[in-house]
């Protein structure tokens, strides 16, 4: 029973992968509709990926827009359609780097106040959020930020790509342009710190350790 389910999952994954490859090929050949289909498919995860790194909804939206425009302009040059996802993440990661570069320059000229923690709280007009939910959300992001601050830049990025963005190790190597053993080493250290940090237990407290 379990084996047949796994077989079905694998078949679904293969179908999904081949349909994605076909869509990327069509988009690369200039099919605008095919590319719009790719936007539909990846906009949410790219937006979240950027949001995890910028903590700002508006900035994440702007960067996501830029990411897809850059991808649209460059998709014809993508040699391996199977690498579309990691290629998109790479563009997004560059977008995030540019964002921080500009922000640093801007902070030289203006009195820049740290807005990181406040921005994780959703905008007032984004919906009626219950006070408890708001508190939980804030606690989660604060706890995760504290944990992340204890990781090195490489460990942090690899950890995010693996456990927040749900990329495979192969995809992470493609996104970061590092070899597999380097990625695994950073990931190993990050997981080790994750297990040792008491804060992690704090911000995950009260949650069921089960996937949704």
């Amino acid at each position: 029973m379990n084996g047949s389910l796994q077989q079905a999952d694998r078949t679904a994954d293969t179908d999904d992968h081949s349909s994605l490859t076909a869509a990327v090929r069509m988009a690369a050949a200039g099919d605008r509709c095919a590319f719009e289909g790719l936007i539909e498919r990846f906009q949410g995860e790219i937006f979240r990926m950027v949001y995890y790194r910028t903590s700002s909804r508006m900035d994440a939206e702007d960067i996501t827009q830029e990411v897809f425009i850059n991808a649209f302009r460059g998709v014809h040059s993508l040699k391996d359609p199977g690498m579309f996802r990691s290629w998109l993440y790479r563009i997004a990661l560059n977008g995030v780097r540019d964002y921080y570069r500009k922000k640093r320059v801007r902070s030289i000229f203006t009195l820049f106040s740290r807005e990181h923690n406040e921005e994780h709280v959703p905008d007032k007009d984004s919906g009626q959020e219950h006070g408890q939910d708001r508190l939980e959300r804030k606690e989660f992001w604060d706890g995760l930020d504290r944990f992340m601050s204890r990781l090195s830049a490489s460990e942090r990025e690899v950890f995010r790509l693996k456990y927040l963005d749900d990329l495979s190790i192969r995809e992470i190597t493609e996104v970061l342009g590092k070899n597999e053993s380097t990625v695994k080493t950073h990931l190993y250290r990050a997981v080790d710190k994750f297990r040792k940090e008491q804060d992690v237990q704090g911000f995950l407290k009260g949650e069921n350790y089960e996937y949704e």
């Binding site: 719009e36 984004s126 959300r137 456990y163 994750f194 995950l204 350790y209």
Partner: peptide, 30 residues
Amino acid sequence: LIVEQLGLVGTLAKRYAPEPSRKVVLPAME
């Protein structure tokens, strides 16, 4: 347990992240 804790981080991050309020718009003509 470790796998589930790590998975939970991703699940909660997704739950607590906002949804994009606008769609990506491509340039007018291909």
